[in-house]
Design a protein around this nucleic acid. Structure first.
Lengths: 212, 212
DNA sequence: GCTATTCCTTGACAGTCGTCAAGTTTTTCC
DNA sequence: GGAAAAACTTGACGACTGTCAAGGAATAGC
């Protein structure tokens, strides 16, 4: 094979792979939205296909099996969700501004992406029963923890203090508040959500030790 | 009908009802253990029946449908799990003793009843997708919050201080730590669990304001 | 424009699910 | 002990599941 022919074939192969991967992520996104709507327990391949523009058979052309498909969907979730607060951190110049921006974003995404968030918790729990999800879940959970840590440590820095607990403790606290707010959000208990919002700044302050 | 005959019939009816309810709870307990083993998504009525001494048809004799059965199983969970720390609270005479007793019990039940706990989180999440679970979940969650509050408020009292956050915030913090410990417990990451255990006393102290 | 490859649809498979009716076994009552 | 009621088993139903093979439609390469 000539060098030119070889290069051409590589280019073709690469384009095909790109196309293949593009369709894979497209279907993974459709899967993600179906899962977010129905939950892991009730999501079937035919339902996923109906939320895409393809038929159900195509899923086995692009994915090995259901587990493979859902795993890819979970990884899609990560892409969307793990840099959410970085802009607030980057643009805030005062502690008060950062805290307010975080709280606003926190409850914004709670309402905006509620179904996606409940899916995350669903899958994280699923990993307690199904080992094959665990590695991905732990990785995403770690990234979420890092994301929260970037906010709180920066807040402490702006305040001239230090975080009052470990990264893990701070993460589970804020994540716990988010979970609870999500539950009451779906219940339609808007005043409870509002109360959690009002309390959040105080909780953040509890999590950092001010300079003195 | 004579008064005697009436009373007799009442007694019979009551005995029958008691027997009926006894079998119902017996089957609900079997359901609970099956759910704890397989998770909500993978639990079928036939599997539940196989974990009891009856055939699958009997479930429709005692329960209206699957939802009714699982609801009863969830209520069984509550009976088991919501007074766990009360003895520690009652018998502790010093803050240090209470805190140590709580931490010990916390990680005891984490290992002992791990499958039951993962089921609780599974069902709580399920209620984000299925409205019919939500009322029971909220009730149980409230009782768990109360249980934690009894511990922390008593701890603050023994310490001569006051809780540093609302009942809800304190609950989600400790519950979040529990969830995370559970995840790492099932992953077999024993050193992470040990680290969470080592940090827990400090977190509890963070949640109360000492007298000064 | 023809061929070969890729992409996608259709329909079927074996299995499982919740539900329920019919029938059998056990218990209750006189 | 025999009749009535309760408790339980069995087997079947329609619907749904993940998977996959066969074939049609679209595209790429010459």
């Amino acid at each position: 094979m000539t060098e030119v022919a070889s290069r051409k074939q590589d280019r073709i192969a690469r384009r095909q792979v790109d196309k293949f991967d593009a369709r894979r992520t497209e279907l993974a996104v459709a899967t993600l939205h179906t899962l977010a709507e129905l939950g892991y327990a009730r999501t079937s391949l035919r339902e996923i296909a109906q939320n895409s523009e393809f038929s159900h058979g195509v899923l086995h052309y692009y994915f090995e099996d259901k587990r493979d498909l859902i795993t890819q969907a979970v990884r899609q979730y990560e892409v969307v969700c793990v840099t959410r607060y970085d802009e607030v951190v980057a643009t805030s110049t005062t502690a008060e501004q950062l805290r307010a921006g975080f709280v606003a974003m926190f409850f914004d995404t709670l309402g905006q992406d509620a179904t996606l968030h409940r899916l995350w918790y669903d899958l994280r729990n699923q990993s307690l029963f199904d080992e094959s999800f665990r590695a991905d879940v732990l990785e995403i959970d770690g990234h979420r923890e890092d994301m929260v840590w970037r906010v709180v440590s920066r807040y402490a820095e702006l305040l001239g203090g230090t975080p009052a607990a470990s990264s893990g403790t701070i993460y589970v606290t804020l994540d716990g508040i988010f979970q609870r707010a999500l539950l009451h959000h779906f219940t339609g208990n808007t005043d409870t959500v509002a109360q959690l919002r009002a309390e959040l700044p105080g909780v953040i302050d509890m999590l950092v030790t001010k300079a003195g």
